[in-house]
Simulated assay, not measured.
Amino acid sequence: MQTVLTAHYLDPTDRNWNATIDTLWQQAGAAQNPAFIPPHFVKSTFPRMGGLVVAFYTGERLSGIGLLFPRAIINNNRHYTLRLHEIHERLADAAVQAALAKTPAIIYRPTDGTTFTPTAPRPAGVWIGPPQAGDLDAITTLYRKVWGSQPYPPDLFSREFGPGTALVATVDGQLAGFLLGFLRFGCSPTAKNELAIESQVLAVDPAYRQHGLATRLKQEQARLALASGLHCIHWTVDPLQLPNAILNFNHLHAVAGEFVRGYYPVRNEQNLVTASRFGITWLPTTLHGRQGLSDKRQRFQLSNLPNVAILNEGLRLRSVFADPLFIAIEIPSDWTALQHRDLNHAMAWRSTTDELFATWIGWDRYVIYAVAGDAGGHHYLVGRPAGAWIW
């Protein structure tokens, strides 16, 4: 009698979630398989964007691991792309579909071959568009250069996988940056089941950062999303990274209404201490958000904000009056360099600001919407009460 293939859905709220993912990845030989997605993403962002992890068993033998990526919402039902990693032998599609039962999914195997935009020369100057197969090695190299950790598998950029966003930026024909995003279920707190974009990873070569490529990549991502009928883009960011804050708030006019302490269980060149994160929401169809589609850059001075409550001076907390019109939280001017220069001091910065963000930031409290400076050269994240102005 043939043993039936069964699917076991993993619960991300289980207290052993991280350890379970590590064990599965080890059993499947992920360390020797570059097609496996970095486990820190699976542990953190993946379930938050509506993804599901499923382990397939033949009897008691682990036969495969599947990641169910959000794909579409049809008649109010969620549909997925199953990114399938088989361990011993190829599993029959019919058996996989039967095991998934009532979860509608298209099966995608990274081993089955991928295609990309046809190879063609790029124009001189700055160009942004879909990747070609010849870009994949350069993307992997750039990821390692910027992040210093395991890169995302290049097949995620392919037509077969169908990511939410797949973009590269070139300067005079040379790859200078890339942006990879996924589809997600739910984005803004007012639309819990909408299909949206999770803008997962962006990298720009330091040699080309004078071209504004990060802003251009994000703007093109938004235009493509809008053309597909998607109105919300979400991503996570380290709240202490000043360049990212300026990009997200002053250039793109996104807002941060979520904060998660210790979001990523990861250590790399930019995360030597606890990897806390803001959840960033960009709504490029709203009055506030659509300003991010223009090339206008806003600059804010703390002195121009009425009744602003400065919550800290470095590591020293300040007492503030009740219900201020604006709040300002000081952040380091170069967070990555600080972590490498003085790890203990960086840990103190993280602990202090984590407490402030956890206390003040939320969709029912204050949202961060700008970066402002003062006469002394300090930089602050500026928040105001959440309200109708966002939507």
Rank of each mutant, 00 (worst) to 15 (best):
T114Y: 06
W147R: 09
P118A: 06
A207Y: 03
P121R: 02
F157Q: 08
D112N: 06
H234C: 11
D172K: 05
C232M: 03
Q210I: 09
R216C: 10
H211P: 02
F157N: 08
G186Y: 07
R122N: 07
Q219A: 09
A120N: 01
A105D: 02
V204L: 01
K102S: 15
F116I: 11
G125L: 08
T119R: 07
Y108L: 01
L175P: 03
S158P: 03
Y152H: 13
Q150Y: 06
G162K: 00
F116D: 03
D137R: 08
W147T: 02
G162N: 11
G125A: 09
Q210T: 14
P189R: 09
P131F: 10
D135T: 12
V146D: 10
T140K: 10
Q221K: 07
H211A: 02
A214W: 03
Q241P: 01
E194R: 11
L202C: 09
E194Q: 15
H211Y: 15
L136D: 14
T115L: 06
L195K: 08
Q210V: 11
P131L: 11
R216G: 14
P104D: 13
T111K: 06
A222K: 05
G113H: 08
Q200F: 10
Q221W: 07
G129V: 09
A101Y: 10
P121F: 02
F116C: 07
T114N: 14
P130L: 12
A169L: 12
P123S: 14
R184P: 01
P151C: 09
E194V: 15
Q219L: 10
R216W: 06
I139S: 08
R159W: 04
I139N: 09
G113V: 06
P130I: 10
Q241D: 05
R209H: 05
P189I: 12
T170N: 11
W127A: 14
L142T: 12
K192P: 15
Y208E: 15
I106T: 15
L183N: 14
D135M: 04
D155Q: 08
G134Q: 15
G125H: 10
R122W: 14
F161R: 02
G148E: 08
E160W: 04
L183D: 11
T119A: 12
P104H: 08
Q219I: 07
R159F: 05
G212D: 01
Q219Y: 11
H231L: 00
G113P: 07
R144C: 15
V146Q: 05
A222M: 07
I233A: 09
A105G: 08
S158K: 05
T170D: 13
R159L: 06
L142P: 05
I106S: 07
G229N: 01
T215N: 13
A124D: 15
I106A: 07
V201W: 02
A227Q: 11
L242A: 13
Q200Y: 09
Y108G: 00
W147E: 14
R109Q: 01
V204C: 02
D112E: 06
C187M: 03
Q210K: 08
R223L: 03
P110A: 02
L242S: 05
D137Q: 13
D205A: 01
E220Y: 00
E160T: 05
A138G: 08
E194C: 14
A196T: 11
T115P: 04
T117D: 06
V146L: 12
L213K: 07
V171R: 05
